[in-house]
Design a protein around this nucleic acid. Structure first.
Lengths: 300, 300
DNA sequence: TTCGTCCTGTTACAAATATAACAGAATTCT
DNA sequence: AGAATTCTGTTATATTTGTAACAGGACGAA
């Protein structure tokens, strides 16, 4: 067991905020208490200023758990805890500078974390603004359509996204195949491809020749292509029924797939809702199988 | 004593803040009530969040005066007044990235894309707010340290993240190994692990037994562990030198790794800067090799 | 001045809130 | 696998906290 003390973000006067104190103690807390702690930090400090019972309820823990944790934090009781919270709030409001102009508080705005996050949020905003929701729904419907075989294709970097989508669609429906365009074996998979099969292809720069070849062949066989690419658009997009282009520029030597990941996850969420009963059924079966393998921990 | 009136700073949704309401009513109030009103506005909203009696005391009015004025303001009672104050505070604190903004224009705000994006942005904000930048830098330094072997471990779902980090660190430095905890072969890799080796482990719920076992063995051999987990924290975190917990809840049957992806990409960006000359050199070599394989398209 | 109205504070009561004690689960250790 | 320990929730009690009713006091009008 390792207990380290995080020399936390301090307030102006050098005294730790309650949020910091919670954070520091986090390792010494029990499950329910940790759950509670997160709930408090979730909308800090408002949550802590209500009645104890309300806090317990939103955190899904019992009333005494709150009382106990507050004492563990070094307060005499909940009221004292609240009093200090209010004091803190008072101090914060009177000194309304800074606060929240950076993402990672306590880091300068030039820190990688802040710069990078800024860029990604910006990417998300631009990407989403350009997406046609109807096309998106249409694509989701295609992916959800169990009557048509689904192929998911990724390249060197985009393999990550493809695999992630595959992992989930595999749970959602039968008849899904994951193809790595970097593998020499990919032509094998195309043998069975026919008209109306659905391809989800990921291709971000640098666009891969293999992926393009694969797309061409699939297209030639009448398959419908859904493409996830970047703002400059992979050449595959000429063959694609529907394309989504995400912004991927970040202050780094590489591009960011975080935005595309967001799209993929949204698509997964949408697909699972198309036929929720069926999805639920398949997920339960999977749970059962996992239970039998004892792969996961049963509790916490 | 309070002198000026902030011309109705309204909330985003057009509803008046409580401060505004007090202000508007100010003329209809009696002496004691006005005295109280000023006291409330003095350090708003903290003062109103304490017990009624405390507020009465600092304002030098009697307890019932407070109760009466609160009712005059249109609240059923003091508790209701407090509840609304807290709601207001919550909204204010959460405001930095205006919530209401629909991301995918043209789609209703209830559309999956908007809902999901909202959640992810929210996750990012909360996650970043809780990260200690110093620990982050420290972790990056460990990953960048070429004198120590680096192992990257992922489970069933988190495999995606692990692989992505591996793909990039492999370019950045020698001596990186990717281990899938879902593979039975993982113990083989631990044979050579010694003190000071660095492990980056990904474990989000449902936490995997294999990953924990692997972490324990690595820890027993003296390796240093950097953990990426979710807000509930994988049990591995007890063994970890440094942990990062990302929020992963989204409106979906699954969790979202988008936030963790952001962290991973930030880390990659940071690591590449630790020794940029070296990084650049390795990247150029890689370019050359890619050129020779003709894997990528030369233009576009 | 005297009456009446309105305001304000003191007291008493009711409701809620927090704490303490206990017992049942769960987890860890042997 | 069983015992001990730790954690967690339920119940019961004490305290705080808010509200209602009452009575004294200030101010204005006649």
């Amino acid at each position: 067991m390792l207990f380290f003390i995080q020399a936390g973000a301090c307030m102006t006067d050098g005294i730790l905020t309650i949020a910091d104190r919670i954070h520091n103690k986090l390792d010494n807390l029990t499950r329910a208490e940790r759950q509670l702690a997160h709930s408090i930090l979730e909308n800090y400090p408002a949550s802590g200023l209500g009645p104890l019972a309300a806090l317990a309820k939103v955190a899904n823990v019992s009333v005494p758990t709150v009382a106990r944790m507050v004492q563990k934090l070094g307060f005499k009781g909940y009221p004292e805890f609240q009093t200090e919270l209010r004091e803190e709030l008072k101090a914060t409001v009177q000194n309304p500078i800074a606060k929240h102009d950076t993402w990672a508080e306590g880091a300068p705005s030039g820190h990688v974390l802040n710069q990078f996050t800024d860029a990604v949020i910006d990417n998300i905003r631009h990407t989403l603004a350009q997406i046609d929701p109807d096309k998106f729904d249409e694509a989701c419907a295609m992916v959800a359509d169990q009557s048509k075989p689904l192929y998911i294709v990724g390249g060197r970097v985009s393999h990550t996204l493809a695999e992630y989508l595959f992992l989930h669609t595999q749970v959602l429906r039968p008849n899904v195949t994951h193809i790595q365009s970097t593998s020499n074996a990919w032509p094998h998979y195309l043998l069975d491809v026919g008209p109306n099969d659905v391809f989800v292809i990921f291709d971000v720069r640098r666009y891969e020749n293999n992926t393009l070849k694969l797309a061409e062949m699939a297209h030639a066989r009448g398959a419908k292509i859904i493409l996830f690419t970047d703002q400059w658009r992979s050449p595959v997009h000429q063959l694609a029924e529907i394309s989504f282009s995400g912004r991927i520029v970040v202050p780094s030597a590489w591009d960011s797939v975080a935005t595309l990941m967001l799209l993929v996850e949204s698509m997964i969420a949408a697909v699972q809702n198309v036929d929720w009963d069926d999805t639920k059924d398949r997920m339960e079966q999977l749970e059962d199988m996992f239970d039998q393998t004892k792969l996961f921990r049963k509790f916490t």
